[in-house]
């Protein structure tokens, strides 16, 4: 009579052998190209302007790796349009960054996955008190 432990291991091995070894080669999201470096630099410079708005709750992080106006009431009226412009410029850079990282990995079709990975990372890096959108799209204070 066959050893049941051996049989179990054999079945497990057979099942594992039927699974694809790896679906994807992992994207290198740290990849660096002049375009990516330029986008990061532009975003870094803008971050100094955006930071007080994150802290005040005026601007928050969306779950799809972008930023959005969370509470315009936290801003004087005259500042709301310039902050809108700042948000649009930041989102333009962020969209370009995700596209460039996917392209630098030679897999433009990975853009969506890279975007969601970054979306989670931005939220992890957010300071306490900043606002972000959870997976269902609701605003949450960190």
């Amino acid at each position: 009579m066959a050893n049941p432990v051996f049989l179990f291991r054999l079945i497990l091995l057979m099942l594992l052998s039927m699974m694809p070894l790896s679906g994807y080669t992992q994207a290198n999201i740290e990849i660096d190209t002049p375009a990516i470096a330029s986008l990061k630099q532009s975003m870094q410079q803008r971050h100094k302007q955006l930071e007080p708005y994150y802290s005040r709750g005026a601007v928050g992080l969306t779950h799809d790796g972008l930023i959005a106006m969370h509470d315009a009431n936290a801003l004087p009226l005259s500042a709301r349009q310039p902050v809108n412009t700042l948000i649009a410029a930041e989102n333009q850079d962020r969209n370009a960054l995700y596209r460039e990282i996917a392209r630098a990995n030679s897999h433009p079709e990975w853009e969506g996955d890279i975007r969601s990975t970054f979306g989670q990372r931005w939220i992890q890096l957010a300071r306490p008190g900043w606002w972000y959108q959870n997976a269902s799209g609701s605003w949450v204070r960190k």
Binding site: M69, D71, A72, N73, A74, L75, L77, R80
Partner: peptide, 11 residues
């Protein structure tokens, strides 16, 4: 006046 989101407001 202001709405809840502050996207329509006057002072």
């Amino acid at each position: 006046f202001s709405d809840a989101t502050g996207l329509h407001a006057g002072e």
